Simulated assay, not measured.
Amino acid sequence: MKKKYLFLIMLIIPLWWSCGKEDIPANGEDEEEETIDWNVAANASSMALINQFWNSGGNYFNTDNSGNTTFQYWPNAHALDVLIDAYERTSNTEYSTYFDQWFQGVKVQNGNTWNNDFYDDMEWNALALLRAYKATSDAKYKDAALELWGYIKEGWNDNAGGGITWKKGMEYSKNACSNGPAAILAARLYQEFGNEEDREWAIRIYGWLKSTLVNTNTGAVWDNINSNTGEINKEWVFTYNQGTYIGAAVELHKIFNEKSYLNDAVKAADYTIGSLVENSVLKSEGTGDGGLFKGIFIRYFTDLIQQERLDAPIQRRYLQFMKLNAETLWEQGTTQPAVLFGPNWRQKPGTSTGLTEQLSGCMLIEAAALLEKEELFN
């Protein structure tokens, strides 16, 4: 009788342990020192994006996973970015097979054109399309990106000393969100195709952004300036504006190899991870548009981390921040087994969430997998 009782206990204990761990991909032999396998986690999160948000009838990503089929132009650009992240990491055509479908569906949903009233929205799509071209060498993505770049340059005017306006018909509103991504795009186009005009555009846009909307003492990126009044909105400091300023600085550093650009990026990154956080985890910036902000910061922060000239102590500090945020999201803020993310990376969203919040989570997990693959995580 005692032997039978002991046998049952021995059988139940490992089953209980495995149930407690089943939603956290891990590796390693010592169970007490198990670490998350970020490649497995990234596969799970990026496939969840497809399985729960992809609209197979319209060939775009839905606004949420609960049946809302509303089309939103700019989040779909970031959804393509995540698919490209996953494809570049794995070379799995299960991700790339959606590229062409996305290309067709998004253009149709946008009125059968890439043109849009919001310059930042066009910039996000141009950046994603340029990445799709680099990943596939398919000229249609290049052509669409260059078409968008032509529209985007029309948004520059001399109000407030320069800069690309936020929206057509609102020439007085100059925003960080319409200039940071434009500088990244111009710099990447130059690096890809060698057009000197694109390099000059990158320098011009970045210079205006830094001199007008950046507190160079703290690294804070202010949201916008109203050229009618000269008033700068210094109350709105968002992670995505921090991220694109960082991204622009990194791209210019790649072109010129000048440490000053890297220093600009570090200043903005330090402000972000010191001021836009709650207990060292990026804070919630809400749902809707705000749900995407953290993910955009993570994308360009990850680019900064990978720069060879970044000082080693700074890189270590940034990697610790990334690891803490990724582990917190995966262990505390992910609804399993559906793999859903919400705006608060310390809190599970339940059975439904929005596309923007899901994308930010996917970007963080994909970034962790990339850093693991490059052996920067330890």
Rank of each mutant, 00 (worst) to 15 (best):
Y5F: 12
F7D: 12
W17Y: 14
G20I: 12
K21V: 09
E22M: 15
A26K: 11
E33F: 13
E34V: 11
W38S: 03
N39F: 08
N39K: 12
N43P: 03
N43I: 04
S46H: 01
L49G: 01
N51D: 12
N65W: 01
S66H: 13
N68K: 12
Y73T: 09
N76Y: 03
H78P: 00
L80V: 08
V82S: 02
E88F: 04
T97K: 06
Y98Q: 03
F99N: 00
G105D: 00
Q109D: 08
Q109V: 02
N110T: 10
N110W: 07
G111P: 06
F118W: 11
D121P: 07
D121A: 11
A128D: 02
L129Y: 01
A139N: 12
K140N: 09
G161R: 09
G162P: 02
K167S: 10
G169S: 13
E171K: 11
A176Y: 01
E192N: 09
E196G: 00
E197S: 02
W201A: 00
W201M: 00
I203K: 03
G207K: 01
W208T: 07
S211T: 13
N215F: 05
T216M: 13
T216K: 11
G230F: 13
N233Q: 14
T244G: 08
G247R: 06
A248R: 03
Y261S: 05
N263S: 15
D270I: 05
T272P: 05
I273L: 07
G274A: 14
S284V: 06
G288C: 09
D289M: 08
I296V: 14
I298Y: 02
T302C: 08
L304D: 03
R309H: 14
A312L: 08
A312E: 13
Q315I: 09
M322C: 10
A326C: 10
E327T: 08
W330L: 12
E331S: 14
G333M: 09
Q336Y: 11
R346Y: 10
R346S: 10
P349Y: 09
T351G: 09
T353M: 10
A368D: 02
L370H: 06
